[in-house]
Nucleic acid binder design. Structure first.
Lengths: 118, 118
DNA sequence: CCATTATATCATTGAGTGCTGATATAATGA
DNA sequence: TCATTATATCAGCACTCAATGATATAATGG
């Protein structure tokens, strides 16, 4: 049972990181880093469609990464914990050093080939 | 061009987190948190297949999350930066608080339905 | 040189999942 | 009540990508 909880912890951790591993969710989180926003404001801030955002918000909320509060017809979202900001900042620090490596990680790349010459 | 770099930074950050967002890669990283290991030792530590691990290691190395060193017939891998450990630890702290939420994030769940009664 | 060991690569497959468009729900105001 | 605004839900599609099995490469020992 202890081994199982170890495995479960792995899955939880992976799921947590998956919340950050998509550009759409990430841009939502970045927008909320500045201040709480309602869905319409997130649409404006990110340029994503409403249904897309709503879907991602649902997951982010279920995962405990954002919290929501109803105010009249609006639903305001905010980061659920300060450590989420810390996590993002730490990632930025790390990236400033390993960015070149990540640039070259075209293995699972979809968009345009960032593959530089050499 | 500045806007583009903003978008690029988002993609980099997402890609970095994606390195952590898979249980297989995560268990490889966890094993390497303890000490550097060669591929065979990682196989033993994680129980994953060799080719699977090798594939994940290739990505992790390209992304700059692990570094490798050839020693005879063996290739030893280690975490490329101390902040990777920090990132994992911060995630663990965060999880200890929001775990209940992540448990319920069955939205993108694959395995058994953790869906509680109500 | 041949067998063995260690690791990497590749094609394939199947499941995961992000996006869209349509629709449902809910709150507000006229 | 009806129209409008704000948000959520859902089905379907397209694409991503983890896992596997087979094979390639490379180093070592006999």
């Amino acid at each position: 049972m202890l081994l199982t909880s170890k495995k479960l912890e792995l899955e939880l951790k992976a799921k947590l990181f998956r919340g950050f591993s998509d550009t759409s969710r990430l841009s939502i989180l970045e927008a909320l880093r500045v201040q709480p926003l309602n869905v319409g404001e997130i649409v404006t801030a990110t340029g994503l469609t409403q249904s897309n955002i709503s879907n991602h918000l649902g997951c982010l909320r279920d995962c405990g990464l954002v919290a929501s509060e109803q105010r009249g017809r609006f639903t305001y979202y905010r980061l659920a914990d300060d450590r989420i900001d810390s996590l993002l900042r730490l990632a930025e620090e790390l990236l400033s050093d390993v960015a070149k490596g990540v640039y070259q990680c075209t293995r699972y790349e979809t968009t345009e080939g960032v593959s530089d010459g050499e």
